[in-house]
């Protein structure tokens, strides 16, 4: 049975300030799958996440990215979001004075409007939010605060996952969501992500460490090095990486002619 992939990336090249960072990425993510993209610092992991979300600082010089068969790269960032692309930011941005509930409601209704669905009123929205809070064990106090303002690192990351739960994206990209989290916070975040896995959506986890993958078990692991995916495999690849370190990857890269 052939399924249409949720995300298909073909020979994608991208640069920032004239410097090429991604040098030909190929990646296919099918419905229900969780892919982990690992790699040393500077390998282009976060660039890939930002390019898929449509950050203007990154210029796509060639290649394709398709979301369920449709060209993703021609869309504005907000259109991509409405089409179901969600980026959990490595550094979530603070919006002083902007109420979290209001912000989330605007986001949910932007997606609904795009799909031709009726916008949620205050009561329906609150019901949806309460249900998601229960699933993720998030306190109501969060809703009364300004978006990310004065949040600790862990709170910010949890808030990203909470937003993801409310928005129910087709493709979730988690950019170093594990960085800066202690083990308890990591467990909470991972637990949330696991609850959101479904046969209809897909996730791409960008991470430096294998640690996160103990809690979120990926279907496929890719190793990104110098802007290219140099190795792909099952979840055991992450363990191998952990054992041998990234130097092992670098040697491997030299064997395959990257670097």
């Amino acid at each position: 049975m052939s399924q249409q992939p949720i995300l298909e990336i073909r020979d994608l090249h991208a640069s920032v300030e004239g410097k090429e960072i991604l040098k030909g990425i190929n990646l296919t993510v099918n419905p229900g799958e969780v892919h982990a993209i690992m790699g040393p610092n500077g390998s282009g992991k976060s660039t890939l996440a930002q390019v898929l979300a449509g950050h203007k600082a990154y210029e796509v010089t060639s290649g394709k990215a398709l979301l369920r068969g449709n060209d993703l790269l021609e869309l504005d960032p907000e259109e991509r979001a409405r089409e179901g692309v969600f980026l959990a930011f490595q550094y979530p941005v603070e919006l002083p004075g902007v109420n979290s509930t209001y912000f989330l409601k605007a986001a949910v209704n932007a997606v609904r409007k795009h799909r031709g669905e009726e916008e949620l009123d205050a009561a329906d929205f609150l019901a949806l939010v309460r249900q998601k809070m229960k699933v993720l064990d998030v306190g109501e106090a969060l809703l009364r605060r300004s978006v990310n303002e004065g949040f600790s690192g862990g709170e910010k990351k949890r808030n990203e996952i909470f937003q993801m739960a409310v928005l129910e994206p087709t493709l979730a990209i988690l950019d170093e969501t594990d960085s800066g989290l202690d083990i308890d916070a990591l467990r909470v975040v991972a637990d949330g992500v696991n609850k959101l896995r479904s046969p209809e959506n897909a996730m791409v986890l960008v991470t430096h460490y294998q640690r996160l993958l103990e809690y979120i078990v990926p279907d496929v692991v890719h190793v990104l090095y110098k802007g290219r995916i140099i190795k792909s495999g099952g979840k055991e690849l992450a363990l191998e990486l952990e054992e041998h370190g990234y130097d092992w990857v670098k040697e491997h890269a030299e064997e395959v002619g990257v670097g």
Binding site: A53, H55, D76, E78, F86, L95, F103, A106, A107, Q163
Partner: peptide
């Protein structure tokens, strides 16, 4: 960009901020 990534238009993002 953060607002955009949540589906919110730039115009709405500016008013919101």
């Amino acid at each position: 960009f953060y607002c955009n990534q949540r589906g919110i238009s730039t115009e709405d993002a500016v008013s919101m901020i």
